[in-house]
Computed example of a mutant assay.
Amino acid sequence: MNESVVRALSGIVYIALLIGATLYSPISFIVLFGIFMLIAIAEFCKLVNLAYIMPLILGATCFALFTFVIPYNSQSANFTLSLGATFIDLLLLEDLFSKRPSAKKNTTVKFAQLLGYVIFPFLLIIRFALRPAQIAEEQIENFYLPQLIIGAFIIIWTNDTFAYIVGKSIGKRKLFERISPKKTIEGFIGGMVFAIVAVLILGKYYEFPNMIICIISAVILVVFGTLGDLVESKFKRNAGVKDSGNIMPGHGGILDRLDSIIFAIPFLFLYYQIISYVS
């Protein structure tokens, strides 16, 4: 079969699965992203040369604890997850922009990156859409906001699509050539503009109460989503591989598809936590 056809079919299946599971019920949403998280853990372990048994156990334990035990409205748990992930992401950005050669990471550093870069963000994605005090079949439907997750993905997909189109059409100045030679400043700006347009359209459909907050959310997703793509590109470059995995023909692995959202979600979640705290 033609490679372009395989890539298109694979992408359609992925989008249909993600949107379908997210819209169907909170349980299907939780299960899907729990599976995504475990696959991403295995892919990350392969990239950094880390034995995957203990990381998978750690991921499953954190998933069970933060999904079924700790209340979703626990401020201490939410700040721990978001601040922990943000701290690791900032360290990854420092390493990304540093011109010195990357130092060889020991096992402790790899586990810290696993928690902050992979596990915590997936837990935050789930907690971003769910706000009940406890998981309860009779309660959970009243607190589930799938439009937040769908909206975030639409913004990221819009940014990726138009950053590529604008960059390929008029892009001349490289954004970060050392890590991703195809990304351009013009593409980044184009992606940002169309992402904001997407927010304005979504705002009309979902009737979001505060469009300023939504536009700032889009900016956070675009900026940190782009940085997340660069961070994952550096992980792959250091590992000497093109893709993080091969679960999606033509698209690579789960990390390849979700690198933007998992890097941006801690900053977005923290932003909403701050807004909630000061309002």
Rank of each mutant, 00 (worst) to 15 (best):
R7D: 05
S10A: 12
V13S: 14
A16I: 14
L18D: 03
L18S: 15
I27R: 11
I30G: 00
I30F: 03
L38F: 11
A42V: 08
E43T: 07
C45F: 05
K46H: 13
L47A: 08
V48M: 13
L50Y: 11
A51E: 15
M54C: 08
P55C: 14
P55Y: 09
I57T: 08
T61V: 15
A64Q: 03
F66S: 01
T67S: 14
F68C: 09
S74W: 07
S74R: 07
A85E: 01
L90K: 08
L92R: 09
F97H: 07
K99E: 13
A103L: 15
K104A: 12
L114E: 08
L115T: 02
L115V: 10
G116E: 03
V118C: 10
L124W: 09
I125N: 04
A136I: 01
E138K: 04
E141K: 14
Q147E: 15
I149G: 01
I150T: 05
A152D: 09
F153L: 15
I154D: 06
I155S: 03
W157N: 07
W157K: 12
D160W: 05
F162Q: 00
I165F: 15
G167H: 04
G171M: 11
F176C: 04
R178P: 12
S180T: 07
P181I: 13
K182E: 13
K183V: 02
G190T: 01
A195D: 07
A195I: 06
A195S: 15
I196L: 12
I201P: 03
I201A: 07
G203I: 12
K204I: 12
K204A: 11
Y205D: 07
I213G: 08
F224K: 01
G225F: 04
G225E: 02
D229W: 00
D229F: 01
D229A: 10
S233K: 07
K236Q: 01
V241K: 04
H251F: 13
I265V: 15
P266K: 13
L268G: 02
S279W: 09
